[in-house]
Every structure is written in structure tokens, then in C-alpha cells.
């Protein structure tokens, strides 16, 4: 089941990516990338390593985090529900079989595309700064998101108002996607919406680079907005999670600007290493 869904996602995104590259990136950049990819990778290697480490931590933490979360987390379902009540049911008013199909595919395929495409697009730029900033922002989203998941135990609207969102609920109509989502996250991790925060991060970067990728900018904004709405439309997230996701995105974009290019790796590994990590000496 999981394999089938994964293959579907890979196929769909695999078709979308070349089209998008042709449309938004263009031949010239690709040709140049062909000759420069080694040096670009080398420059970006530390950032890529950081992101991979974060993703690995995330992977392992998912097994430990629920237990830790039960120990120290706060149960906030009741608070979210008290504050916003049935707000997300507003989106049910636009529910038709077509919008349901649209938002379901946006949530699964559109989101994966939205995450992967800019990584490729920014890699085609001669200056790797944007590429590094994007990866840094992704890493920050995951790290901060994980910490918030540990502290906040909350179930999404579909778990509180199952009947009201049944018509549009992703898993109701396409139960197979649950094999995929349960691999990624537990049902008590809804605050913040990482779908929203990563999408908003991508859209913000698209705005920053709109002179470079003019056609990508509107597409990214529409996709990101659709992803944010889909999380509520499909009954997965509360409005509060989406707002928190947007704030998290803003924070990550700002932090990526401050952090990227701040330290050179050679320097970090050299003389400043001991100053930064003085406890290394004393730990023995």
C-alpha cells in the first residue's frame, strides 16, 4: 500500500519537475549548471550536510518524540477548539467533488512538487547563496517544527469533527494516503502546520527571486496558498496551525538570511572551533 502511494507520488512529481524546469528555469541556466555543478555542490556542501543531519534527526526523533511529548507536552486540542471553534468548516462551503479532488492532489502531489522544485531551480543559479538559504530555511522549519510538536499535543479538526469534514476529508476519500502520512507524522502533531510553513517559505523565496524566475513567482504563490487552504479544507489542520505555520515560515526566511554566509566552514573547523565549543575539552 505504502509502496503504491510512494510510486504514484514519484511518478507524478517526476512528470511535473521536467516541465517546470523547462518552463521556469530555461536552457541557458541548465547548460551552465552542467559545467559548474561540482563547484556549486562544494560551496553548498556544509548546508546540504546540515539539512541531511536535520532530516535524519527528524527521522529518529519521530520514534522517541511521542514518548517525550507525553511526558512534557501540553494538551492543547481543547484550547484550539475553544478559540476557533468550527472556523475551518467555512471551507466546507466551497466543497464540490472538483475542489475536493483539487485540494487532495495539492496536499499530496502539489506539496511535494513545491518542496522539490525550488531546490533544483536555485541550484541552477551561479551564486549558491539562494540555494543555501532555501536549504537552511527547510532545516529550520523542521527543527523548530519538531520542538513545537514535542511541546504541543493537539489533534486536528478531522479528529474532533469527523462527521463535519467527512465529505472533503482526505483519508475518507483516499484512505491509501494514510499509509504515507502516518510514516511522516503522528496524528497528535498538528501545531504548527509544516505543510503551510514550508509552502509559505517557498512562496517567500519565490517573491525574493521573482526577477530571476518571474514566471515561477505567481505559480508558487498560488500553489502555496492552495496548500495552506487544503490543510484546513481537508480537515487536517486548525486555522491556528496554519497561522503558526506562516509565522514559522517568516521566521525561517529571516533567520536563513542572517545565518547563511555568516560562518565559513574552514574557519569554524579551525581556530574558532575550541572557542565555540569549549565544553569539548572539559567533557573528559
Amino acid at each position: 500500500m505504502l509502496a503504491e502511494v510512494l510510486i504514484q507520488v514519484v511518478v507524478v512529481v517526476g512528470i511535473l519537475l521536467p516541465i517546470a524546469i523547462a518552463l521556469f528555469v530555461g536552457r541557458e541556466r541548465l547548460i551552465r549548471t552542467r559545467s559548474e555543478w561540482r563547484t556549486r555542490l562544494k560551496t553548498a556542501a556544509p548546508t546540504i550536510a546540515v539539512l541531511l543531519i536535520v532530516l535524519l534527526i527528524n527521522r529518529f526523533a519521530r520514534q522517541r518524540a511521542p514518548r517525550l511529548s507525553r511526558e512534557i507536552g501540553f494538551h492543547l486540542t481543547a484550547s484550539f477548539y475553544n478559540i476557533e471553534g468550527e472556523f475551518i468548516l467555512l471551507f466546507q462551503s466551497i466543497a464540490t467533488p472538483e475542489t475536493t479532488a483539487y485540494f487532495s492532489s495539492i496536499y499530496v502531489y502539489g506539496y511535494v512538487f513545491l518542496v522539490v522544485f525550488p531546490v533544483l531551480a536555485y541550484f541552477t543559479l551561479p551564486d549558491t547563496r539562494m540555494f543555501r538559504r532555501l536549504l537552511t530555511a527547510y532545516a529550520l522549519n523542521y527543527v523548530i517544527g519538531l520542538v513545537l510538536y514535542i511541546f504541543v499535543i493537539a489533534y486536528g479538526p478531522r479528529n474532533v469533527m469527523p462527521h463535519e469534514v467527512a465529505e472533503t476529508m482526505l483519508f475518507e476519500n483516499n484512505p491509501q494516503y494514510q499509509y504515507l502520512t502516518r510514516e511522516v507524522n503522528s496524528n497528535s502533531n498538528v501545531f504548527p502546520s509544516l505543510h503551510t510553513s514550508i509552502s509559505a517559505t517557498v512562496a517567500t523565496f519565490a517573491a525574493i527571486t521573482r526577477s530571476t524566475f518571474p514566471k515561477w513567482f505567481p505559480v508558487a504563490v498560488v500553489l502555496a496558498a492552495s496548500v495552506a487552504i487544503s490543510t484546513m479544507f481537508l480537515g487536517i489542520h486548525w486555522g491556528i496551525d496554519v497561522v503558526a505555520g506562516m509565522l514559522l515560515a517568516a521566521l525561517c526566511v529571516v533567520l536563513s538570511d542572517r545565518l547563511v554566509g555568516r560562518w565559513s566552514v574552514t574557519e569554524l573547523l579551525g581556530e574558532r572551533f575550541e572557542d565555540r565549543l569549549p565544553w569539548l575539552d572539559r567533557s573528559e
Binding site: 489533534y155 474532533v160 469533527m161 469527523p162 462527521h163
Partner: peptide
């Protein structure tokens, strides 16, 4: 309990 565990319970509760 959340609907994932038992949908009827939460509906009765609501």
C-alpha cells in the same frame, strides 16, 4: 478519544 481511535466517541461527546 480522537476520531482516529473511535469516531463514535467524539461524536457523542460533541
Amino acid at each position: 478519544v480522537p476520531a482516529d481511535a473511535d469516531r463514535q466517541n467524539i461524536r457523542i461527546a460533541r
